[in-house]
Structure formats: structure tokens, C-alpha cells
Amino acid sequence: MDERPDDVLVEQARRGGVEAFSELARRHQQRIYRLIYGMTRNHSDTDDLTQEVFLTAFKSMPGFRGTAGFYTWIYRIAVNLTLNFLRKRGREKQRAEYHDNLLYGEGAAAGLPSPEGGPVRNELRGRIAEAVDSLPPHFKASFLLVADQGMSHADAARVLGCSENTVSWRMHKARKMLQARLKPYLNEVGP
């Protein structure tokens, strides 16, 4: 196991050290992959995006000044690339839904099914995943960084390039949206 601290590896990677950068990537790849997977819910897209994040970071290493930590910097690249990807995918999805509606009529691309018929607790996670997926991209990113990755509001703010207060409000709004969307299921399953 490589014992060199991140700072040393970053310095070597800045000088073009592939091996040093590979070690940095190994240390952070799981968390980056998990973040991107949380946002895309798709392994193929996540794999491509995670590779893209590290390749972009490697190419930009000489310009990395180290004012933010490597950890924050790589997260920021990941969030930006994923948000761009989601924006693009959203446009394509809207286009596809529009064509579906033209072909099969309104309601072909309907949202969640009715809770009637009793989804049970093991189904609730699927509902939560769908609800998280339906959050606006910036809210989703904040929610995953804080609630899933366990980041503080301050760290998430550095990654997202906004204020701590903004992260706090996004968390509050995201939770309200999730709670409103999942209310029927949460009541049904019970404590």
C-alpha cells in the first residue's frame, strides 16, 4: 500500500507523473464513482463520467494551484461534468418524451405509479431513489454530497462553488420535496 500523502502525489502528478496520479485516482475513485452514480443511477454513464473526471483532472494538473485541496478540486470537476451531462440528458429525455407523446398520446411518460396496492418497505428504497432522481440537479448534488457522502455544509459549498447558507437551504428544500413526494409511502410503511 502506497503511504505517500496526497500532497506529495499531487506534486508528482503536476510534473506529469502518471503513476502518482493513478494512486490519487485509486484513493478517490470509489467516492467519486458513488457520487456520480447517485446522480445518474446508471453504471455505464457513471463509468464513462468517472473516467472522464480523472482524465480531465490529469490533463489540468499543471494548472492546479493547490489553493483548494485535491479532494475538493476533483469533486468539483465531478459535479460540474455530471451536471453538464444531466443537463444534456434532460434535454434529450424531454425530446424523447415529446416524441413518445406524439406517437402514443399524453401520459405515455407518466411519473410514479399510484401508491394504491401497498408498496412495502423493501420497495420504499426504490421510491426514494426515484424521488432523489427527480430532484433538480443542484439540489440532488447537494443532497448526495451531504446526506450520502457525509460532507459538511462547508465542504459541500466549496465543491459546489456556493455559500454554506445556499447548501443549507438546498438541503432543506430537497428534503421538503422528497418528503412531499414520498408522504403516502412513508405513512403507509409506518415507523
Binding site: 496520479f21 485516482a25 485509486r26 475513485q29 480523472f54 482524465l55 490529469f58 490533463k59 499543471p62
Partner: peptide
């Protein structure tokens, strides 16, 4: 994860960072 790392390393090897800071 090992497979992911291998693929990334092979792509990193073929990718040359922009050596000069603009």
C-alpha cells in the same frame, strides 16, 4: 474497482498532460 483502475491507467498513459501552464 481493479478493472476500473486498470482501464483508467491505460487511458492516463496515452494521455499527455498539458505540460506548460499557459
Amino acid at each position: 474497482w481493479a478493472d476500473f483502475s486498470r482501464r483508467l491507467e491505460s487511458r492516463l498513459g496515452g494521455s499527455v498532460p498539458s505540460r506548460e501552464v499557459p
